[in-house]
Computed example of a mutant assay.
Amino acid sequence: MKIERRSLLGLAAVAAAGAARPALACQAVGAPSASALAPPDPAEVIRLWPNGAPGGEGVSVTPIVPERSTDPAFHDRYAQYTTDPILTVFRPERPNGSALLLIPGGGYRWAVLDKEGYDVARVFAASGTTCFVLRYRLPADGWAAGADAPLQDAQRALRLIRSRSADYGVNPAKIGVLGASAGGHLAGLASVRTDATYDPVDASDTVSLRPDLTVLMYPVATMADPFVHAGSRAHLLGDAPSAERVAAYSLERMDWTGAAPVFLLHAMDDGAVPVENSLLLLSKLKAAGVPAEAHLFQEGGHGFGVRLIRGRPAEVWPDLVRAWGRRLDFAL
């Protein structure tokens, strides 16, 4: 089975010139040491749609991957106007048989690749989980599926991972999803929706499109006032969505019966996505009989990932997720 490989930096080269990080070809006097440089990106990449993403006839955007970090010790990139969705693969040295699809946030305006993607993937790959970071399409870029375009990518990604599980030493019944912020909303949709949002492409589309476990970090859950993240709603549904559209994309209003176990984590002082998003969803999960666990931290703000929470109480969240997974016989 063919798995395509190419450098993500090669993909980023098609972005605006300001996106590229200056090359460090040699160690000059006063330059950072090798240990102070951000780790290299994995070279293994899987294209989701071998013949192009569906419904792209009206799409004319040009992909960009800008770099926001000025510190060579870490990257802070985001992908915008994605037209060729991909999975970036983080293979552990000693696979434990589980896999995670990581869906970073970005308010459905872009996808934050490093903070909620690659950085988190390295943490869980270090304990044996094979990780796949999703670079997904955005709903306002002209795709025929509109608000369902990102979900098409998430569903296709889960099916590709499951259909190729033997290639990665992964148990096809141990495939989880971890989403952050708006990526948490997308991960929630992938967990609760049972309908395929695209026509089958190949044999991979015969396997299940739902995850076996779900982790939601400070998720955008509701599309309704007063707790909605207005930017995510606008980029997903437009400036003035109908009440029906709002209800159709609010996770706390959907039927979660039969969904996989869910882990929620949120900071009480989150000023971007109010903690009520997790609380509303937790109440819905409880009513639906879905096994769920929630951890609320007094401080942490929004979008902390793993790097921005070091030295603070919420730093323990990966260990809490692993402990929860062990109780479910799901190594992470």
Rank of each mutant, 00 (worst) to 15 (best):
L332Q: 05
R327S: 11
V207D: 13
V290K: 04
A23N: 06
L158S: 11
T83C: 06
D319W: 01
L24M: 14
R245A: 15
P150Y: 05
V215N: 06
R135Y: 09
G97D: 12
E315M: 04
A173T: 13
E252D: 15
L213A: 12
V65S: 11
N96K: 00
V45L: 14
E116L: 04
M1N: 10
Q27A: 13
A221I: 03
S283E: 15
L332D: 07
A243W: 01
L113V: 11
R326K: 12
P104V: 06
G128M: 04
R245Q: 15
A267Y: 09
L151N: 11
A31L: 01
H75E: 11
R6F: 14
A34M: 07
R109Q: 14
G188N: 11
A243K: 10
I64L: 11
E93F: 00
Q152W: 02
P66K: 07
A79G: 11
V45Y: 03
G97W: 06
G271I: 01
L236S: 14
D167R: 03
N51D: 15
P95H: 02
P54E: 09
L281V: 04
A99L: 01
G188C: 07
V273S: 08
D239C: 00
P32D: 09
G52R: 03
P32V: 10
D329P: 00
N51C: 08
R135Q: 15
A111Q: 09
V14E: 15
V306T: 15
L237K: 09
T83R: 12
V89Y: 07
A267V: 07
A259F: 06
Y168C: 04
R193T: 15
A53N: 08
P72N: 07
S204F: 01
L100V: 02
D195P: 00
S250L: 05
A166W: 00
L285T: 12
A125Q: 07
Y108S: 12
L281R: 02
L279K: 02
L100I: 04
N51P: 01
R164W: 04
